[in-house]
Design a protein around this nucleic acid. Structure first.
Lengths: 242, 242
DNA sequence: CGCTACTTTGATATTTTTCAATCTTGGTGG
DNA sequence: CCACCAAGATTGAAAAATATCAAAGTAGCG
């Protein structure tokens, strides 16, 4: 079996997480081997979707699981009151679309233009049952997301808006592939409103928290979708779980 | 192979969750076959621990995964400020102790006297890699917990204390094995303080919310650890994600 | 270049937190 | 068996923070 070319490999689905077992680093690492990525490529379809496209809606039959290759996705639920709760933002190497009782539990929508891998749930199930090593990596990935979700619960427990936003920026920086030259630039592809719905704050509070972070010289919002970290130490201190 | 006696079966580890795939019911079901439960019994040790016993601490090497057989456990993190965030309450057929980088990410403590199954992580890994069907059920369980965790995020997003508490009671009722005769009695083995740390409220707010629920004739707290639902319809309405 | 969606800013109202004191309850020992 | 003790729970009043309502300001896109 030939090793896929670099270009092809970048377009194949992949998963990234902090593994269960002790490793040398504390960072997220690629979980899949080239072989496993090829297997997934075989059963899946690559899609390119424009910004704002709804990928699936809550409560519809869940026939596919998705892996993000490029771009950003949000997963949310609209409540009867009209409020929207953003449950997660998904970035490259994230998995989404896990179902409950055969139905999606949230709506997924593209924030930017995205490239996805769409995996039919039946074929994926089959594949996982025949490749325990691959399944183990899926287990690691879902476990990682569970911990992330619990971390977010801690985040939301804070009642100071500026602290929550600081924590959010820190989270986003960790999620993004870290490019050395842009180490202090954190892309925030989502809207302020999305951030508010994720943090459990009002849109206005997020705006005021942004102003406060700038006033204190911690972060500068270079544009709506790019935050530059001016003072990493103070950001870390403010982000630290209080 | 002989089928284990009923008594023995009740003491074996088991997992319960809402499966991925479409089923007839929307309720949690036993995921493991008797055969799989026997396999787990073989590698694990059953433990009985008294109330308040710390099962493991945050940041220590994670050598075991635990399954609750009987009783209740809380998982929490203590923050530098002295605040405590309860990440989850665990009940029979729940799994806990999944690690990150070989370390536990929270502290687990018995709320009541508990019976646990302690599974060595190495032997479990080995077993899962050799039994893809069993691993698939673990994947289902972790996925279920991920969804639960996200549901809780929605819960916490509400800012009305009474609504949060109502939602909490509803959650607890769903988690508990439903006994027909005590359908309206919801055991709350944890302290008010634990509930506050789970809901992201102050202890006092939980107390006031309890008083409000009683005043409105929705719930009666028969003792500190038992809530009786007087008006299920109004509880459901109040619990409904606003 | 102008429209539209998104964001910021201001003033008020609502809610929870905080601080403090009191009350209950379950367990212990005389 | 009762009284006492300590941990947990409740209640009250004041302070702090965010939500809400309203209006004005920006920026990106066609």
């Amino acid at each position: 079996m030939k090793k896929p070319a670099t270009a092809a490999r970048q377009l194949a689905p992949s998963l990234r997480a902090i593994p269960f077992l002790k490793g040398t680093t504390n960072t997220r690492t690629e979980l899949l081997t080239d072989r496993q990525r090829e297997e997934l490529t075989r059963i899946g379809t690559r899609l390119r979707l424009p910004s704002r496209m709804v990928i699936y809606r809550e409560d519809v039959p869940a026939d596919w699981v998705f892996a993000v290759v490029e771009g950003a996705v949000k997963s949310y639920r609209d409540l009867p009151s009209g409020k929207r709760v953003v449950g997660a933002f998904l970035f490259p190497k994230d998995l989404f679309g896990l179902s409950e009782n055969g139905k999606y539990v949230a709506t997924a929508q593209a924030i930017t233009r995205v490239t996805l891998y769409r995996l039919p749930i039946d074929a994926l199930t089959e594949l996982l049952l025949h490749d325990p090593g691959l399944q183990f990596q899926f287990l690691a990935k879902v476990t990682h997301e569970l911990r992330d979700s619990q971390r977010r619960a801690i985040l939301i427990n804070r009642r100071d808006a500026a602290g929550r936003l600081a924590m959010f920026i820190t989270l986003m920086r960790e999620n993004m592939p870290r490019t050395p030259e842009a180490d202090r630039e954190v892309p925030l592809p989502m809207s302020r409103s999305d951030i508010a719905n994720f943090l459990g704050l009002s849109l206005e509070s997020v705006s005021r928290a942004s102003a406060e972070l700038e006033r204190r010289g911690i972060v500068k919002f270079e544009s709506r979708h790019v935050a530059r970290i001016l003072n990493p130490a103070r950001l870390a201190k403010l982000s630290a779980a209080v």
